[in-house]
């Protein structure tokens, strides 16, 4: 694994007087596929906002590599489909910081945006309105927009939320392909442990305001996950995939 693109050292995060996360020490290294998981309200969004540079740490240090180019894929439910924007219009937004103030996107920006749409398999739908696309297609558009930044770090917030099973698998395969082929470092945030554990090499698990970091094999343990989620769980491995299921206290894992 390469040198860190982003380094958190003893970081404390919060809003107002409330501390949400403390003692966060984490390296996002080049070539990493890092999964961030935790139950709802555990501080995933807080950590994500700090990673994106939106939230400043209350104490500690966040260091970013000089050549960091960050592409961000927000939760698509956060976007307002009322806007009459095409898929290409949205992907072009990723070029705005490069275009600069006052100027309009250049033909080269359009070409690059089309190329990004092609990478996510949506070139044909470039002129289609965003609101007319399916959930999976919208997710691909947002990934294409993040690619238009030409990132070396791609951060995805709950990219499979609300998608059916085949679409979820297709989106995750796309992310993995981008990671492997384009050598993009990935940070995948999700509350669905099965999803993250299947693809991530390293995991960050949020527990009681702290971040546990380790390899997937270390953290995908019944004892650890029981502490995180506060319920008994079973963890089983099928091929390269982890399957996690909540169980009743008296159930034995083999029966789950």
């Amino acid at each position: 694994m390469g040198e860190p693109l982003v380094r958190f050292q003893d970081v404390v995060l919060g809003y107002g007087r409330q501390v949400v996360l403390s003692d966060v020490t984490l390296d996002i290294r080049r070539g990493d596929f890092f999964g961030l998981v935790g139950p709802n309200g555990s501080g995933k969004t807080t950590l994500l906002r700090c990673l994106l540079g939106i939230l400043k740490p209350r104490s500690g240090q966040v260091t970013r590599a000089a050549d960091l180019r960050l592409g961000y894929v927000p939760q698509r439910e956060m976007l307002d489909a009322l806007f009459p924007l095409t898929a290409l219009d949205i992907v072009l937004m990723g070029r705005y910081p490069h275009v600069g103030l006052v100027r309009s996107p250049r033909p080269s920006d359009r070409e690059l945006s089309m190329h990004c749409l092609q990478q996510v398999g949506l070139a044909d739908l470039a002129p289609r309105l965003y609101r007319e696309l399916s959930g999976g297609q919208r997710q691909r558009v947002l990934i294409a927009r993040a690619l238009a930044v030409q990132p070396n770090l791609l951060v995805l917030d709950e990219p499979t939320n609300g998608l059916d099973l085949p679409t979820e698998a297709a989106i995750l395969d796309l992310i993995e392909r981008l990671h492997l082929r384009n050598e993009i470092t990935i940070v995948l945030v999700s509350h669905v442990l099965n999803v993250v554990a299947r693809y991530a090499h390293r995991l960050g698990v949020l527990l009681d305001g702290r971040l546990l970091v380790g390899d997937a094999d270390e953290l995908m343990q019944e004892q650890v996950l029981r502490e995180v989620y506060g319920v008994p769980v079973c963890v089983q491995r099928v091929d390269s995939h982890y399957l996690v299921a909540v169980r009743d206290a008296e159930e034995v894992c083999g029966d789950v």
Binding site: L52, Y72, M78, P97, V149
Partner: peptide, 22 residues
Amino acid sequence: VMLRKEFLLVAFDAETAQALGY
């Protein structure tokens, strides 16, 4: 008119705009 694309981005997706440095 000159700042329309920035106004558009911030209106449509403020979080990504922040991540892009706006």
